[in-house]
């Protein structure tokens, strides 16, 4: 098995400093977060520019060139509902360290993002929902199948579609957690790759609790075969847990210094 893939979530326009940096093309705040996350062990960096309806293409091109130029062509995840911005980003993207990732498609309005990935030889995150949260795993699996078939019919490899069960917030949806984990297992038993927004689970919890819950969740999800997550790589406890789980799953060879790199 390949090592767990961490997609760093911290370049996100919801953060005021990042939003300002994107709007006014200020490199420093973005590069600071890019480097922090890579140093902490992120494989991919998510670049969330929001809907960015007016200037999305420009912003994405600028951000991709900026980050890849300063960070040895770190592989990126294009996170926006603006399709043109994704295409623009991919047009200047360097694939040396990995294919671009499109974040994301779903089985509803955004299903055509699978077509976009197929046309651009990209990886696509496929959210197993249509409108709102799936009621149960039967529904999740139906969405998963629909998206998988579409991807395959467009000539994509199954390994380039990473299925997202949609991690749910524990405060409010505590009873749904095992179901999500079970879905991760179903996907991995089918040989499919999985991912998801891990930090969702601890949303609304006190700051000092979140790393504990996120770490426990990632460990249980990795036990069920989770192959990737969009999360905060600067959370030391979380990264230590991921590395330890990778060792236990035999994805990564143990050495006494395994936590250090």
């Amino acid at each position: 098995m390949a090592r767990f893939i961490t997609i760093g979530e911290r370049i996100h326009c919801i953060s005021p400093s990042i939003r300002d940096a994107m709007e006014n093309r200020k490199p420093e705040p973005i590069l600071k977060r890019a480097k922090e996350q890579l140093d902490a062990g992120a494989t991919y960096l998510d670049v969330n520019i929001g809907p960015a309806e007016s200037s999305g293409e420009e912003i994405m091109k600028w951000a991709v060139t900026l980050i890849q130029g300063a960070c040895d062509n770190a592989p990126l995840c294009f996170d926006t509902s603006n399709r043109k911005a994704i295409e623009a980003g991919i047009s200047v993207y360097n694939r040396a360290k990995g294919k671009p990732v499109i974040n994301s498609a779903d089985a509803g309005d955004r299903i055509s993002n699978i077509d976009l990935a197929a046309a651009n030889d990209a990886i696509v995150l496929a959210l197993c929902s249509k409108s709102g949260i799936s009621a149960d795993n039967d529904e999740r699996m139906a969405h998963c199948q629909e998206m998988l078939e579409r991807a395959l019919s467009l000539g994509m490899e199954a390994e380039d579609v990473w299925f997202d069960p949609l991690f749910l917030v524990i405060k409010g949806m505590q009873d749904k957690q095992l179901e999500v984990l079970e879905f991760v297992r179903q996907c991995s038993e089918m040989g499919l790759k999985t991912t998801g927004g891990l930090s969702n689970v601890s949303n609304g919890m006190p700051k000092d609790i979140r790393p504990v819950i996120d770490s426990a969740m990632v460990a249980m999800a990795m036990m069920n075969g989770l192959s990737s997550a969009i999360c905060n790589p600067c959370d030391l406890r979380l990264m230590q847990t991921i590395k330890s789980c990778d060792v236990i799953r035999n994805n990564y060879l143990y050495a006494d210094s395994y936590l250090e790199f």
């Binding site: 060879l253 143990y254 050495a255 006494d256 210094s257 250090e260 790199f261």
Partner: peptide, 14 residues
């Protein structure tokens, strides 16, 4: 000793 083999490479690199 495969774990030591890796560890030595890490230590030398460090």
């Amino acid at each position: 000793d495969i774990n030591l083999a890796k560890q030595l490479n890490v230590l030398m690199t460090q």
